[in-house]
């Protein structure tokens, strides 16, 4: 079965990012397919590579990144939500005339249409948020 997962909260502030990550792992472990994971609202903060939690804490962004690499996942950050919150890839930072980018490997920035397409293409859409 094909899943689309929506993540609406950033890591650390709300458990939903952890829940979504564990759910995604369980979906894959059971042999299902993840069509797309879409990050919206503060969920876009799951895609920064500049988080430095204490050494004994989890690094959620890196866990997403590694999961994406291992399973060739499509992790999409909403561009409108990302621009508001300062999550930038190289092209977008350049386009906006900014001096830095911060997206972590395995994520890409795209439009909200990707969420709707995810809802259409997947057999199940599951939302995690606050």
């Amino acid at each position: 079965m094909k899943f689309t997962i929506m993540v609406n909260e950033g890591p650390y502030q709300h458990q939903s990012a952890d829940s979504a990550l564990q759910f995604a792992r369980a979906v894959l472990a059971q042999g299902h397919e993840i069509f797309r994971i879409f990050f919206y609202h503060d969920g876009v903060n799951n895609g920064t590579r500049l988080s430095v939690p204490p050494a004994d804490d989890r690094l959620i962004q890196k866990e997403w990144s590694e999961l994406a690499k291992e399973h060739d996942l499509d992790l999409v950050i909403c561009i409108a939500a990302a621009q508001r919150r300062g999550i930038m890839d190289e092209d977008e930072a350049k386009r906006q005339g900014l001096d830095a980018n911060n997206i972590i490997e395995g994520f890409r920035i795209s439009g909200l249409g990707q969420l709707i397409e995810g809802g259409i293409e997947a057999d199940r859409t599951v939302v995690f948020g606050d």
């Binding site: 899943f3 759910f23 792992r25 979906v27 059971q30 299902h32 599951v126 939302v127 606050d130």
Partner: peptide
């Protein structure tokens, strides 16, 4: 249930709704 059971529930039901 555990997370595997969570996934099974999403499969057994045709749709999901999160009450955020």
């Amino acid at each position: 249930v555990d997370y595997a059971g969570f996934v099974d529930l999403t499969v057994e039901n045709e749709t999901t709704q999160s009450w955020l």
